[in-house]
Amino acid sequence: MIDHLIHMGGYAAYVWPAYGLATVCIVGLYVTTRRTLKAREQEFERLKRERREGP
């Protein structure tokens, strides 16, 4: 069963890259979105702290 999954009836060279690319896109986009969100949240907090304490 597993080797059938791996060989994909001889089309492994096409099916797996397709699913692999989809995974890279989906996970990659989630990670970058998460990272920019966190960076901006920290920047925003810093700006708010700075404004409260005066320049």
């Binding site: 989630y30 979105t33 969100l37 901006r40 920047e43």
Partner: peptide, 24 residues
């Protein structure tokens, strides 16, 4: 479903970005 999740995160990010630009 994935699109909606990422959209919500990116919306938060865009709104924060506008606030940062405004503050600067």
């Amino acid at each position: 479903g994935y699109y909606v999740c990422i959209l919500v995160l990116r919306l938060r990010s865009e709104i924060l970005n506008a606030k940062i630009r405004n503050a600067r």
